[in-house]
Design a protein around this nucleic acid. Structure first.
Length: 324
DNA sequence: CTATAAGCCCACTCAGGCGC
DNA sequence: GCGCCTGAGTGGGCTTATAG
């Protein structure tokens, strides 16, 4: 990809850990349905604050002296790509234990985001709800990532719950799709939303997908962009379709994404009305869309539905996105 | 108070490096 | 080869802090 030249996307190195992804998490479902009301409960971290300058010095030292373990690299890379992941997601990507994550936190590599008590209580399927944590890059991890990547997701501590959950669920979609791809013998890649962004002629973002997984096919990587909708407005779908079509015609994406084939859009929606919106937007166009739009409901994702089977809005039928 | 999370200590495994 | 050390990751078990 153009933006992170010389940097391997996370998944290219993580295929060995991926089979762990297969079983259902369940630790995610309730994050969506529960409204944030209760506050953080339990002991709070008393890790002393450090200045951004101190963090940068630590990061430079860690890299120069080669003192970042392979596991630490994998974890920071995963977070640099996905922004915010649960301890469960991190485990399924890297096989890192909660204990080690705690250590990384202490070393300023990671930050924790408070998980709300009610949402924890609502867990029913989780293997170990007590160990569920939300992690983002910490001050040092952020600086490490900045040295490796042009754009790094930041600011989660300032984001509202809705936004954080949006990103966690987006990552869940990517991880589950990747897990299936690995199961079928492919080596999937995982690009961040920054790497997936396409700009207009003035340099402003024209498309800002939530993530960009890629799966090889016939020796060439085939890209998908994820659009995760956890709102219930059908009009958002129409504007997305219009925007993708505009960007397609513009053609700039070929250079920015370094691909000859426009990535297919994987639209995941928590409200059926959004899927309906896509359907109407596509069928009502006078010209047949040039982009491929695929849809799946979040309900199906967490129910363990086959992650390769998506509804193709253009053709009006189910397809297998890894084989068709 | 209780429930929950963070902190801390110890012990174990495993891999790599070093000296002999 | 062997023994020894060190660092990383891990898990158990206990203590301490804090919101409700």
């Amino acid at each position: 990809m153009p933006k992170n030249v010389g940097v391997e996307p996370v998944f290219s190195r993580l295929t060995s850990g991926l089979p762990y992804l297969i079983h259902l998490y369940g630790d995610i479902t309730m994050l969506l349905t529960q409204k944030p009301k209760s506050r953080y409960r339990g002991r709070q971290s008393k890790r002393p604050e450090i200045t951004p300058h101190q963090a940068k010095q630590k990061a430079i030292r860690l890299l120069r002296e080669n003192r970042l373990s392979p596991m630490a690299v994998q974890v920071t890379e995963a977070l640099a790509t996905g922004g915010v992941l649960t301890s469960g997601q991190l485990y399924h990507v890297t096989t890192v234990s909660p204990r080690t994550l705690q250590k990384y936190h202490k070393q300023y590599l990671l930050d924790r985001l408070p998980i709300l008590a009610d949402e924890l209580m609502a867990l029913d399927l989780a293997d170990d709800p007590a160990k569920l944590r939300l992690y983002t890059l910490g001050p040092v991890g952020l600086e490490v990532a900045r040295i490796r990547h042009e754009h790094v997701p930041t600011g989660y501590t300032g984001y509202g719950t809705h936004r954080i959950i949006h990103d966690v669920l987006t990552n869940e979609v990517v991880l589950r799709l990747a897990a299936l791809a690995v199961e079928r013998g492919y080596e999937p890649l995982w690009y961040s939303k920054y790497e997936a962004t396409v700009h207009d002629e003035r340099g402003n973002p024209a498309l800002e997908p939530d993530a960009m997984p890629a799966v090889p096919r016939d020796g060439v990587y085939r890209y998908f962009v994820v659009e995760f909708h956890n709102e219930d407005k059908r009009t958002r779908a129409r504007s997305k379709v219009d925007r993708y079509e505009r960007v397609y015609r513009d053609g700039r994406w070929r250079n920015e994404l370094e691909t000859d084939e426009m990535p297919a859009v994987l639209a995941v929606f928590t409200h059926k009305i959004v899927g309906k919106g896509y359907r109407e937007a596509i069928s009502s166009r006078s010209m047949r869309p040039r982009c491929v739009f695929l849809g799946k409901s979040w309900r199906d994702v967490i129910a363990g539905d086959d992650m390769a089977r998506w509804f193709n809005f253009n053709q009006g039928k189910m397809v297998d996105i890894l084989e068709d």
